[in-house]
Amino acid sequence: MTSKTERLTELVRTVAFAGRAAAEEWVRDSGLTRQQAFTLGYLEQHQDRDVIARELAEMSGTTAASVTSLLQGLEERGYVTRTSSPTDARIKVVRVTPEGARVVAGFDESMAAEQRTLFAGLDDSEQDQLLGLLEKVVAADPSAGRPPGNGPRSRR
């Protein structure tokens, strides 16, 4: 027999897996690797400050050499630029180009469409009710609102 908590957990996972499957499909269709897509999304999200390769390596749990190779590939495709920091010429700042931002915007649009489809079976009142209940669950557990690890938003 399945408890209520187990059933709730199963249903929340099902919703999360639907989003993840849509994200994986977008990554496959984009011609990017998962790591490239994640990196572009992270950079786009943090465009307001200077992101450097070391930060990318730390937050993704990879080596500096791996990040360098990853950035070379994104740069060759015209998705990122690496320029010297205005405060230290030895440091390269990584930024998303307009083309890279367009790619990321396509991901956001795809995820929004998936989310609309996923919740289309609920009317506005039911969506408000579900939203309130999930906010209550998250508020009751301070760790529930944090992403696993040190990663960026979960869209990639």
Score class of each variant (00 low, 15 high):
residue 2 T to D: 02
residue 3 S to L: 10
residue 3 S to W: 09
residue 5 T to A: 14
residue 5 T to V: 07
residue 6 E to K: 14
residue 7 R to W: 00
residue 8 L to R: 12
residue 8 L to Q: 07
residue 9 T to S: 12
residue 9 T to F: 09
residue 10 E to Q: 14
residue 11 L to Q: 03
residue 11 L to Y: 00
residue 13 R to S: 11
residue 14 T to S: 12
residue 14 T to G: 14
residue 14 T to V: 08
residue 15 V to M: 04
residue 17 F to Q: 15
residue 17 F to N: 15
residue 18 A to I: 06
residue 20 R to N: 14
residue 20 R to V: 08
residue 21 A to I: 10
residue 26 W to E: 08
residue 26 W to C: 08
residue 27 V to Y: 12
residue 27 V to E: 15
residue 31 G to A: 01
residue 31 G to P: 04
residue 31 G to Q: 05
residue 32 L to I: 06
residue 32 L to Y: 08
residue 33 T to A: 08
residue 34 R to P: 01
residue 35 Q to I: 14
residue 35 Q to A: 14
residue 36 Q to G: 04
residue 37 A to H: 03
residue 39 T to W: 00
residue 39 T to L: 04
residue 41 G to E: 00
residue 41 G to Y: 00
residue 42 Y to P: 02
residue 47 Q to N: 09
residue 48 D to P: 03
residue 49 R to W: 12
residue 51 V to M: 02
residue 52 I to C: 11
residue 52 I to P: 03
residue 53 A to M: 06
residue 54 R to V: 14
residue 55 E to T: 12
residue 55 E to M: 02
residue 58 E to N: 10
residue 58 E to R: 08
residue 60 S to M: 10
residue 60 S to A: 10
residue 62 T to Y: 10
residue 63 T to Y: 12
residue 64 A to E: 04
residue 64 A to Y: 07
residue 65 A to W: 12
residue 66 S to T: 04
residue 67 V to W: 01
residue 69 S to I: 05
residue 69 S to V: 07
residue 71 L to A: 03
residue 72 Q to C: 12
residue 72 Q to W: 00
residue 74 L to T: 04
residue 75 E to I: 04
residue 77 R to Y: 05
residue 77 R to G: 12
residue 79 Y to M: 13
residue 79 Y to P: 01
residue 81 T to S: 03
residue 81 T to C: 06
residue 82 R to D: 09
residue 83 T to R: 13
residue 83 T to D: 07
residue 84 S to L: 07
residue 84 S to W: 03
residue 87 T to Q: 09
residue 89 A to L: 13
residue 90 R to Q: 09
residue 91 I to V: 11
residue 91 I to S: 09
residue 93 V to S: 01
residue 94 V to G: 02
residue 95 R to Q: 10
residue 96 V to S: 03
residue 97 T to G: 04
residue 97 T to S: 06
residue 99 E to H: 09
residue 99 E to V: 06
residue 100 G to P: 06
residue 102 R to G: 05
residue 104 V to G: 03
residue 105 A to W: 06
residue 109 E to F: 10
residue 110 S to T: 02
residue 110 S to L: 02
residue 111 M to P: 08
residue 111 M to V: 13
residue 113 A to F: 03
residue 115 Q to N: 09
residue 115 Q to L: 14
residue 116 R to A: 15
residue 116 R to V: 15
residue 117 T to I: 05
residue 119 F to S: 13
residue 120 A to L: 00
residue 122 L to G: 03
residue 123 D to G: 01
residue 123 D to T: 01
residue 125 S to E: 07
residue 125 S to L: 07
residue 125 S to M: 03
residue 126 E to K: 04
residue 128 D to M: 00
residue 130 L to T: 01
residue 132 G to K: 07
residue 133 L to C: 05
residue 134 L to P: 01
residue 134 L to Y: 13
residue 134 L to H: 10
residue 135 E to W: 05
residue 136 K to G: 14
residue 137 V to C: 05
residue 137 V to R: 06
residue 137 V to Y: 05
residue 141 D to W: 13
residue 141 D to I: 13
residue 141 D to P: 06
residue 141 D to Y: 14
residue 142 P to Y: 09
residue 142 P to W: 11
residue 142 P to R: 14
residue 142 P to K: 14
residue 143 S to K: 13
residue 144 A to H: 09
residue 146 R to I: 01
residue 147 P to K: 05
residue 147 P to E: 00
residue 148 P to A: 08
residue 151 G to W: 05
residue 154 S to R: 15
residue 154 S to D: 11
residue 154 S to E: 10
residue 155 R to I: 14
residue 155 R to G: 14
residue 155 R to M: 15
residue 156 R to T: 12
residue 156 R to W: 06
